[in-house]
Amino acid sequence: MLDHGRKAMNRCILAAALTAIVGLSGLAAIAHAEQPDDGLVNESAAAMKGKKVGFVPIAMGFDLTEAWAAGLKHDAEAFGYDLSIRDPNWSVDAGAQAFSQLISEQPDVIVVHPPEIQAYTRLIQQANAQGIPVVTMNLKADANGDVFIGANWYDIAVKQTEAIVKSCGQGSGKSGKIAVMQGVLTNPTSQYGIQAIEATLKQHPEVQIVSNQAADWDASKAHAIAVTVLKANPDLCGFIGMWDNMDVGIAAAIKEAGKTGEVALVSSGGGNQASACDNVANGNFSTYISYDAKGQARDLMMAVRSVLQSKPAEPGTKSIALYTPLKTITKESNYPGACWNLDDVKKYGP
């Protein structure tokens, strides 16, 4: 009798537990089904779920790539695709290696940030040939891939040159001597930027380039070069820099020489608060052309979403160009919100 009672009790507990489980899963099902199918939402989510996305930046740890990665991470979580970031830490060779490694793993899309015009060209073609769509970020390689998201470097350099002509050209009363600080010479910033600078300056013969050197995106190298240039040309009027993270080195050199405000520094970059707007506000940069990396991150998310949902039939044959809208920031146009904040983007997504 006692035994029977215990058995009954056991059965009771089991039944209760079962009910609870069934009830809970029912609730969960309800929670899922809460969103009505509008005809696309479920289908598109399913198309992205479990896909593999590879990202090879030039390096992690600076505003541009961190913002883009934040965007991809956001989507990877939201749609359940698998994101793999390979950080070659500024080494072209390691980057090429990581890229070819990714190709052999056959992901559904590869996002690359080419350090040079040529270095990844063959690899992009190779990936396309194997049926993997490629999205190139910000720096245009010779091969188009499927989507290009990034700045038009010719445009940026034209805008930068016009800005410097304004401060150093006719009527400014300055010497008209300017210096150009390039990043990596084989990079599209230099390849197209220099042509733009030269073409623009043709119309302003009073402005001449007295120094044209490369600092490999390295602020300390830019600093060393700028110190030299400033000393060699005491009457220098301005610098054109090609990337804010590097140009802070120039700004430091100008500051050391006590010439802040006197020597113009026109920079460009991803529009991160710390390296763009702050530097404009404190006078380090006189003019800044922003290609809004936060917006690019958004573009990247959308591009990856669309490629994942509808894979190009023959990758690499029809390329889409998404050139980033440019924003000129000066002391006057440095409104709150002109820049974005990296910490916030990392925390809340682009």
Binding site: D218, A219, K221, H223, A252, K255
Partner: peptide, 13 residues
């Protein structure tokens, strides 16, 4: 303190 910043990539220089 003379340039108001430290660039750690100087390690690679």
């Amino acid at each position: 303190t003379s340039v108001d910043s430290v660039e750690t990539r100087i390690v690679r220089s």
